[in-house]
């Protein structure tokens, strides 16, 4: 199986631990995403071929997953900023 490499991960000669971790995280979420979208979208095993609806569903699933993750990360950052501000305010 060939894995699409994210930008920057192709020069594998001089990667540091941080980059390897980022790449690993990417692969883990790639696998999770595949599992989730496959479970939700592919239910018919009377045919070997991927149906048009299954294909569309999987791609929508992936796109939506990325958007949801982006939104969650935004809200999380906002929460953390607020928490930091509260800590700073209580120190004064």
């Amino acid at each position: 199986m060939s894995v699409p490499l994210p930008a920057g991960a192709t020069e594998l000669q001089n990667v540091d631990g941080e980059q390897i971790k980022t790449f690993k995280d990417f692969l883990i979420s790639y696998n999770k995403l595949t599992e989730m979208c496959f479970l939700d979208c592919v239910t018919d095993f009377t045919s070997r071929n991927i149906k048009h609806t299954e294909d569309k569903c999987s791609l929508n699933c992936m796109e939506k997953f990325l958007k949801v993750n982006q939104r969650i990360s935004q809200r999380f950052q906002e929460f953390q900023m607020l928490a930091n501000e509260n800590v700073l305010a209580s120190q004064k």
Partner: peptide, 29 residues
């Protein structure tokens, strides 16, 4: 864990569209 949980709780497993619906967005927040 939070990402997985909120996805599970807010996004129904029907993917007719790739946009986040309004109700889903509010649910995620």
């Amino acid at each position: 864990r939070m990402t997985a949980t909120c996805h599970k709780k807010c996004i129904p497993p029907v993917y007719g569209d790739s946009e986040i619906a309004k109700g889903e967005a509010v649910c995620i927040d």
